[in-house]
Design a protein around this nucleic acid. Structure first.
Lengths: 237, 237
DNA sequence: AGCGCACTACGTACGGTGTACGTAACTAGG
DNA sequence: CCTAGTTACGTACACCGTACGTAGTGCGCT
């Protein structure tokens, strides 16, 4: 059978450098850094093959020597950020360690707001992701459970943190992009949500919105969520 | 001040029909249905203004009379699917009801695999989302807690379910798109993950991968995750 | 009744995207 | 040394979202 099917090979499986030919002018790390810089400065939508190539100082199509598809560029970016995760000696208190992990993940996503959009679990098991996962498992050593359960804990925690931060960032983006933050917020809530809720069809939603008028404590809410998450995996008393 | 800023208005705030002019040839529901059909048949990437317009049987630019930006088309799609959520009389057992909600969400995402990619919390409070949320809150009536906490429960449950199903679908997609499912899986795992883990740097990850060799029970794992999630919100004994 | 205007419909056009393909330069293995 | 595989990169194509202009339509007001 000549002509292999265009199998979607994982980028981490292909070696960064083969013996033949002139030596590449850039490393994978360079490319990831360039893409991350573009995303940090112009948002994820600014990450195009052309822009990243320009940032890197090479022709557009040269990028394809390093990155077979754009999706792989995303994977490089996620891996690069995963490398920013701090790794420490486990304290022996798995709850404290996991709390710290969650806070770091949140901080990471605040520093790189585009991360939440790439956190689809399609990108898995990159080198730095392995490092990160191993560290999480090390922190969970004191917890007596099978690895499958620990992986589930990490997965659920990540899913919740991602979802939480995404909400957080969306809210921040909304208030930032509008001319009058509070006024517009009220205008929209009253104009649409107000009329929708005033119909009386959704009494609980209406109650939920009038319940807490004060500004919510995002930090506190986050820590509470993490705590609940960890509660779920704590051994029953 | 002439020239209002192009404020990103929520699509649900604008009325579907104003008095003036010829009556629109399509309804929002029609458009949402067309977009959903295109996504179901060709994936989310097939959802372009041109394709949806063609499916609808109108010119491309006519779509913009109904949908100011493509992002709003996405919102219409999510709302349409939210309408597929079944709503029942709460049983009085909030855990049982929420379990059922989670299972329905999962089923929904299996029926429309592109949903996980649109589940960014940017899209919020569409008409059918309100209906869904009110139903969740109704199911949670027996749980003594503030609405804020109940909303958090729903949010976390949704986040975890989304993340879980996304992983599930990605795995299914991978095995489907490859010529030999199991063989290729082994090839990749051994070629890359194997060599990475064989280095001995990640002993726990290696152990995690060798721990359970049998095929994993996706249903069971899902139910277990939901149960843990609900545990976290159950009143302490 | 009839005028005017807001609305619908839609074709054209522009700047942007991912990437297939062809060509030239280069370097390590035989 | 030769040659095959690799890098670098320009050109080209199909497709995307959407700004804008034009024509037709029917409601609301006078």
């Amino acid at each position: 059978m000549a002509g292999r099917a265009a199998v979607p090979e994982v980028i981490w499986a292909r070696p960064e450098r083969t013996g033949r030919g002139p030596r590449p002018a850039h490393t994978r790390a360079d490319i990831a850094a360039a893409a991350v810089k573009v995303a940090d400065e112009g948002g994820l939508d600014a990450v195009s093959m052309r822009h990243v190539a320009a940032e890197l100082g090479c022709g557009t199509m040269s990028l394809y020597n390093y990155v077979p598809r754009k999706e792989d560029l995303y994977e490089l970016m996620v891996d690069a950020i995963s490398g920013e995760h701090e790794v420490w000696e486990p304290s022996g208190d798995w709850r404290a360690d996991m709390r710290r992990v969650a806070q770091q993940t949140r901080a990471l996503m605040h520093r790189h707001p585009w991360l939440t959009r790439l956190m689809s679990p399609v990108y898995g098991f990159s080198p730095n992701a392995l490092r990160y996962l191993e560290h999480c498992l090390a922190c969970l050593d004191p917890l007596e459970a099978r690895y499958g359960m620990k992986m589930q804990l990490v997965g659920m925690l990540n899913g919740c943190v991602t979802s939480y931060v995404a909400t957080e960032l969306a809210a921040a983006e909304r208030t930032r992009s509008l001319p009058w933050s509070a006024e517009e917020e009220n205008a929209v809530r009253i104009a649409y949500l107000g009329t929708a809720l005033a119909g009386g069809e959704y009494p609980r939603m209406a109650a939920a919105f009038t319940e807490d008028s004060g500004p919510i404590d995002l930090e506190g809410a986050f820590e509470l969520m993490v705590e609940r998450m960890l509660d779920a995996f704590a051994p029953r008393a």
